[in-house]
Design a binder for these strands. Structure first.
Lengths: 225, 225
DNA sequence: AATTACCAAATCATCAGATGACTTGATCAT
DNA sequence: ATGATCAAGTCATCTGATGATTTGGTAATT
């Protein structure tokens, strides 16, 4: 049976306002009616209006300025892509993360400095190889290295999205596979740093793709395709 | 001068609770203290607690069940990365979109079919070249083509994120540059389709990067770097 | 003993009213 | 003109109360 989601007043109100925003009732930078007016127009209390507005603020649609009013900040939908990503297949999530990883490696090569290379080598040494115990600690150190590679791109968007997908993939694997994927060894990791150090974007990207290829094959096998 | 962000009580409270969640004070599925208790613990009113919780719900961290309580749903932030992307530089946004575009082209080549190629050629013909009038219509047709290229990857995550970044970049350009970037001509567009048709991921990616190179140069020039 | 119907406590959802803090534009004196 | 002052408008927060829903226990029934 389909359990129909009786949305709360707050959700309805947020959706109503969101629809007006993307429908260009108010253009970017324009001011919305004040809370009392919205409350009257939507026939809900001011507290409920505030919760709805707060949601839209957290999603990047609106901005509130105390003493001034509430303004439209953007009409681009940011909820769709991510709620979609949550429900996407593990394969799609992996491919998306690989896209970020590959581009980050290119940029990292382009913008590499000796300092960064040294730091990457330090993190890699600290990571070590899995010694059969303290799994959580090893995973953390491994992730720290990969995140540092992406951070070397000096692109905050890539970094944030990479972290998001890494977390998402971790949750999805836990929920669907219930076990881990194989992890490339130290040499494969070092190859990425070496490629970045050359300063050649093509080589850096190629190194990342070589790195990920066996993981992807492993994934395909586990998913039975 | 650095304008220090005096965070509101709601933001502080949301951040405090968020920190506890990612710090695993409560595990996934576990129940949080009720609103009255949170209100007391944080020394803020219940209404403020509700707004903070509402934000975390909209970000995918929490779930509220009326009559039951508030529960941890996930420790992965679902909107942080993209709201962060909103405030990022145009350059970073472009690089992120390029990452998606390049990976999508690779996958499109890998999964290409005659039907898809035909459709892409049709959309490209329909797009035509800019005739000096009906700017909005041309932009729409151009976007339809690019979106179709990404859609050919058959990866819903890439498609949704690509659409998000395209919209975001459009807004950012309008807000910062106030004008348009040059648009590659028909031949450059056709080269992408041809490359995808060969079925070679390397060629497809290369075609996209060749396509974007002049746009990126144009962007660097306009940003004065 | 198992099942069902009912009830009461717990909790979130919503409302209403009030006060404080901040912004903004107008006013006024210089 | 310029700067200080002030008042209105608006969001931020608090307090108190009521409604709606879930949940677990209790008792009646089978």
């Amino acid at each position: 049976m389909q359990s129909l989601a009786k949305t709360s007043l707050v959700d309805s109100a947020a959706e109503a306002i969101r629809a007006e925003i993307v429908g260009h009732r108010w253009s970017v930078g324009e001011k919305l009616p004040n809370e009392a007016q919205l409350s009257a127009q939507l026939s809900i209390s001011r507290g409920t209006v505030r919760e709805a507005v707060r949601v839209l603020v957290s999603q990047g649609y609106l901005e509130t300025r105390q003493g001034s009013g509430t303004y439209v900040l953007s009409v681009v939908d940011a909820t769709g892509p991510l709620t979609m990503a949550r429900r996407a297949t593990l394969r799609d999530q992996f491919e998306a993360r690989l896209a970020l990883d590959a581009e980050a490696a290119r940029l990292a090569a382009h913008r590499q400095t000796p300092t960064v290379i040294t730091e990457l080598r330090r993190l890699l040494a600290e990571r070590g190889n899995y010694d059969g115990q303290d799994k959580a600690g090893f995973v953390d150190r491994d992730f720290a290295f990969h995140r540092a590679v992406v951070a070397a791109s000096q692109n905050s968007v890539l970094v944030n999205m990479y972290e998001f997908f890494s977390g998402l993939i971790g949750e999805t694997i836990e929920a669907t596979l219930g076990k881990d994927l194989q992890e490339p060894d130290m040499a494969a990791h070092a190859a990425i740093v070496d490629a970045i150090e050359t300063g050649d974007p093509e080589m850096a990207e190629a190194a990342v793709r070589r790195f990920m290829a066996p993981v992807l094959r492993d994934l395909e096998r586990l998913l039975g395709s």
